[in-house]
């Protein structure tokens, strides 16, 4: 990247720490021009399993955190990311983004975070209902986080695409295990932003790995409640659907590109709970 600076070591992000893959495997990442950039860790099934354990441990606490706090943390991510935008523009540039495109991508990522920071305390009202049942009961339905969500991010190295996939599930109170593209160096740098933004350890775990190796693990793991799969691969989608049946995992299929801003993406990782209580003295 720079001949005078210190080259960065890119690792995985699990339970708030940056370990290397337990498998010891790496993938060499080179620039569009063929210049060596880094050795990205290549996560294994065991790394994935450890991530799920970390996410499950963090899930209840994050689900319980107040919407206000979640909003502030998402906004904080935007602040920190904005402050480091130069670094991300550089990283994206090295992976073949033009300067202009890289700048726009980072700016969009920041904007997305700001946008979704504002949803943390509003989607509940939008997707809740008080139900006028015929009997003397107070009856209401509210969204609750699905729990542990696997995010299989778009393949493009776009930071905005990664954020568009993570933010809705995150702000909805889910703990995440994210599979980024094998060569997505900016994804690991984004994890550094998360660490600096008071996202509790384990709430987001981020792996770089070979997709074909880990996607089936995501959809088959019995302790994963839901998966977002960004994919245009017909077989990958079909297999994921098939494999998700084992624990009736919620599987949200999306094309392999950034998700448009929409509160309905938050709803994809919520379960509606209906509560009945009698009205009386």
């Amino acid at each position: 990247m720079s001949t005078s600076g210190i080259p960065k070591t890119y690792k995985l992000f699990i339970a708030g720490k940056f370990p290397r893959s337990e498998s010891g495997r790496i993938t060499e990442v080179r620039s569009a021009q063929g210049e060596f950039l880094a050795n990205a860790s290549r996560a294994s099934r065991k790394d994935f399993r450890n991530s799920v354990v970390a996410a499950r441990k963090a899930a209840a606490g994050w689900a319980k955190a107040s919407s206000y706090l979640k909003g502030q943390i998402l906004y904080r991510i935007a602040e920190v990311l904005d402050g480091r935008s130069e670094q991300f523009v550089k990283e994206l540039g090295a992976r073949g983004f033009s300067q202009k495109k890289a700048e726009a991508d980072v700016a969009e990522a920041v904007d997305l975070l700001v946008h979704y920071a504002g949803w943390t305390d509003k989607y509940q009202a939008l997707f809740s209902s008080v139900n006028p049942v015929a009997s003397a009961h107070f009856n209401f339905s509210v969204p609750q986080p699905s729990g542990l969500v696997g995010i299989i991010a778009p393949r493009s190295g776009s930071l905005a695409a990664l954020v568009s996939a993570i933010a809705p599930a995150l702000l909805g109170g889910n703990a995440l295990v994210v599979l980024a593209a094998q060569d997505a160096l900016s994804a690991i740098s984004f994890a550094e932003v998360l660490v600096s933004s008071d996202v509790p350890a384990g709430v987001v775990n981020l792996l770089t790995a070979q997709r074909a190796e880990l996607v089936p693990e995501f959809v088959k793991h019995m302790d994963v409640n839901a998966v977002l799969l960004c994919s245009d691969d017909v077989d990958e989608r079909k297999n994921a659907e098939w494999q998700s049946a084992e624990n009736l995992k919620r599987l949200s299929l999306h094309p392999d590109r950034a998700l448009a801003r929409s509160p309905y993406h938050i709803l994809d990782f919520q379960e509606i709970k209906t509560t009945w209580h009698p009205i009386g003295v």
């Binding site: 209902s129 139900n131 006028p132 049942v133 015929a134 009997s135 009961h137 009856n139 339905s141 509606i272 209906t274 509560t275 009945w276 209580h277 009698p278």
Partner: peptide, 12 residues
Amino acid sequence: ANTFNKFDPSSP
């Protein structure tokens, strides 16, 4: 809560 097996078309 304090009831059981109640159903209503307006209630998901």
